[in-house]
Design a protein around this nucleic acid. Sequence first.
DNA 1: AAGTGCCCGTTGTTC
DNA 2: ACGGGCACTT
Length: 734
Amino acid sequence: MSKLLEGLNAEQRTAVTTTEGPLLVIAGAGSGKTRVIVHRIAYLLEQGLARPEQILAVTFTNKAALEMKERVHHLVPPSRRRGELLLSTFHSLCVRILRRHLDRFGGAYTRDFTIYDTDDQGRLVKACLKELGLDEKQYPPRAMQSRISAAKNRGETPETLPPSSDPMRDALSRTFRLYEARLAAANALDFDDLLLLTVRLLHRFEDIAADYNDRFRYILIDEYQDTNPPQFNLVRLLTQQRQNLCVVGDPDQSIYKFRAADIRNILDFEQHYPKAKTIILAQNYRSTKTILDAANAVIQHNRARRKKDLITHNPAGEPICVFVAANAEEEADFVVKEITAWQRRHAHLPSPETRAAVLYRINAQSRLFEEACRRQGVPYVLIGGFSFYERAEIKDVLAYLRLLLNPHDDAAFDRIVNVPPRGIGKATLDILSAHAINNGVSRWTATLQLLEAGRLAARALTALNSFVQLIESLQALVGDTKLAGLVQAVIMRSGYDEMLRQEGTREAESRKQNLNELLAAAAEADERQESLREFLDRAALVADTDNLVDDARITLLTIHSAKGLEFPLVVVAGLEEGLFPHMRAAYNDDDLEEERRLFYVAMTRAKQQLYLTYAERRRVYGEEVLADPSRFLEEIPEALLMDVRQQGVGKLTPPPAAEVNGQHWSHPQPAGTKPVGTATAATGFRVGDRVAHATYGVGQVVRVADGKLDIAFLGKGVKRFVAGAAPLKKIARE
DNA sequence: AAGTGCCCGTTGTTC
DNA sequence: ACGGGCACTT
C-alpha cells in the first residue's frame, strides 16, 4: 500500500483513490478536506495516472493554492512532479486562459485587457448614471452595481433586459447596457467578466474547449459549495470529455450567496453528474468535542439542509466562554486581555499551538480590536478591510502602470489624471468626458484629439500636454526597465513623491512607506522575472488572506476571510441581534440560515478554545444603541457554556416584550411578517405601520408629516427620518 | 483651479 | 464619528 494513504481514515482513502469518474466529497468542518485534495493529487502523480500539467486544482484563494502545492511537493518525489501543476483560483485560471485566447472573439476585447476591480466598477457605474442623467439618490450606484453583477451572473445581457415601463428596471437596463459598452471600449473586464468570458470562449470555440479538455485529465475543486453559476458552467465545459472531476465542499459552510454562489451546485451534484460517487467525511479532527457539539447544535436549526452530524474522538476540552460586556470598547479590551492571558497560561506549548484569532461579522468592528491591541501594546495582524492593495496611494501608482499598458483604461485614467494635482480641473475633465462620449473614444484618445484641435484654454492645454508627455515617457520605459525601476520612475516623475513630501504629515509618511513596500513587491516580481502584466494581474486578484502571516499571535479578520483557516483559540465577537445575525439578513429565512452557517463556520475555526462575546451597548453611526444578545447564543446547549462573568447563563434569555403606543411588540421581528421593499420616500408609510431599521430594529410609525417620518423604536425612543434618507423596510402585517 | 464648509450616507460579507 | 461630494468662495 502506498505510504500516501497511511494515516487516512477509510472514507478519506476512498476519496483519494477513486480516480475514475465524478466524485462528490461532502467534507464537514475540520474533516481533513484539504488533506484529501493534497493526497489525491499526490496519488495521481505517484500512480502515474497523470503528469503534473494534466492536473487542475481550483482553490478559494491563491494562498490556499500555494500551501497545497507545497504539501504536494512534500509528498511526491521531484522525479514524479516534473511539469507544471496548475493550482489556482477560478479567477486566476480565467485570466490565464483569457490572456491566451481572448483575441479569438475578434471584437472589442483583446488579450491586453485590463481588470477592473470593485472600485473601478463603482466609478464606472457612477459615470454611467451621470451620463444617462439618472439621479444617484433614486438609483444608488452601489445598488445598481450589485444588481448589474447579479444580472450578469444569472446569465443576463443588456439584450435580455429590455427597456421597461417600470422606472427602476428601465434604469437598470439602460445602465447595464452603457456599463457593458464602456467596459468594452476601455478593453476592460470586471471580476464577473473574467469568468463569464472564459465560459463564452470555451462555449463558442470548440477547439479551445477540446484543448483544455485534453490537457486537464483530472480536475479538483475545493470549496465547491461556494461556486456560482459561471464557475459551474466553466467546470462543465472543462469536464465534457472526461469526467474525472472531484469536488470537495460542505453545504453547511456556504456563505457567499451575496456574490452569486449557488448552494445547489453542490446539493444537486449527483443530478448534474449522474455517475457521481458520493463520500461523506464526518469525522472532525480539528475541534474539541465541546466546540463541535455546540456547532452541531447550532447548525441543526437550519431547516433547508441535508442532515449531517460531525463526530470526533477529540477530548471534550474546556467549556465555551461567554462574555457580556457593557459596551464595545470593554468587549475589545476584554478580548485582548483574555487572549494574552490564555497565551501566557499555555506558554509551555509551541507557539503555533497558541495562535489566536478574533472573528467578527463586519470590517468596521476591526477598529475596536486594533485600538485595544494598541492600548495594551499587543502586536496583531489585521486581514482585509483596508488591506495593502486597497490603499489609495497603491491604487494610484497601479493606475499609472495600468495606463502604460492600456491607455484606454478609463478607470485608471480618471483615477490619476489629476493626481497629484497638475492643473487639470473639473471644467477640463467635463469637456474631455463629453468629447469621449460624443465620439465614442476613450479618455486618452479624447485627450489627444483635443490637444490636436487646440480648442481649450491655454492653461488646460499645457497641463494636458504635460500629462500626455509624462505617460508617454513612462511608456517608453516598459519592457526595457525592470519593474522596480519602472515603479520608482512612476512615483518620482508623476510628482507623487513630491506631493507626499510637501504634505509632511505623519499620514503622508506612512503612505510613502506603503509605496516603498510596493517597490519591494516590484523588486520581488523582478526576481521571479515577472512582466508588468503579470505583476498587475496579481495585484488585481490578491485575496485579503493571501497576505496572512502564519505565525501571528493575534489575527483580526472577518468570518468570511476566516473560511478554511483554523486557530487554537478563537473569539467570535459582536454576537448581537442586528449585528450577527446582521439586520439586513434577519428578515428572510434564506439569509438568516446563511448567517447561521456563517456562525457555524466561525465556531468550527476553533481547535482548543472558543470565546463568544457581545456588548450591551455599541456606537453605531456615532450614536450609542442598545443591543440584545444574538439568537444564535440561545441555540447552544447551556451545558457547553460558561459565563466568564459568573452572571449565569440566564443572562442569555431574550429581553421581555415591550409596549409602544399601547401595542405589544416583541423583538426581533414578529414571526410571519415580510419586508415589502426599501423605502426611498416617506410615501406609502402610515401611522401604525410596523417598520424596521438597519440600526434600531423594529419600530412603529407614529407620525407622518412634511416628508418626514417619526418612528418609535423599542427602548430607543422616537427617531425622525427624512424621506429617502434611511434604510427602512416596511413590514407587512401578517 | 484649488480651498472651505456643510450635508449626507456610512457599516454587509469578497474574488 | 467621519469622510466624500457638493456648493460656494478666492
